[in-house]
């Protein structure tokens, strides 16, 4: 440790520097918030149904098996681009039907395969959840994930 540095100098550098970096971080966060609302996400498409879909997602704690934008439990597939994986960009109706059918088919009971539990969604909940996944797929996430595989 440099002999020239006194304890009180070290303390002042800590407090001053931390405050500086905190203010800088706060400013960048405010800008990122603005950017998300106005540029990278579809704020107009954030309908009541998408909001309800996020509630369905949270109510069933999907995040503790799946990941979304790469965050979650890594135990089950990434879902931020599941809409793309189901061909939603080409044929939205087919993707919608396919996703609903897949969720309704759980648990698959395939021996040796991870089991997704059965979820007793109403038709409205199912459509909202899929709306939420479709909306999430539209977030400009800097081209992540690298493959449709998620």
């Amino acid at each position: 440790m440099a002999e020239g540095l006194t304890r009180s100098a070290a303390r002042n550098i800590f407090y001053g520097g931390s405050l500086f970096f905190f203010l800088l971080f706060t400013a960048l966060t405010v800008h990122s918030h603005w950017y998300m609302v106005n540029v990278s996400t579809d704020s107009e498409g954030l309908t009541e149904s998408v909001k309800h879909g996020k509630e369905v997602w949270e109510k069933n704690m999907c995040i503790n098996c799946h990941s979304l934008l790469g965050e979650g439990a890594y135990f089950a597939p990434e879902l931020s681009n599941v809409w793309e994986r189901y061909g939603g960009h080409q044929s939205p109706e087919a993707a919608r039907t396919g996703l609903a059918a897949w969720i309704r088919a759980q648990p698959l009971e395939v021996p040796g395969r991870r089991q997704m539990p059965a979820y007793d969604f109403s038709e409205e909940e199912m459509q909202s959840l899929i709306d939420f996944l479709e909306w999430t797929d539209g977030i400009d996430a800097q081209d992540w994930p690298p493959h449709p595989a998620g």
């Binding site: 960048l28 990122s32 540029v39 934008l69 965050e71 977030i139 996430a141 994930p145």
Partner: peptide
């Protein structure tokens, strides 16, 4: 503090 940025790469935040 700014290291938080490594969580902001792929969530719709600026590049």
């Amino acid at each position: 503090l700014l290291g938080t940025g490594h969580h902001y790469y792929w969530i719709g935040a600026p590049s």
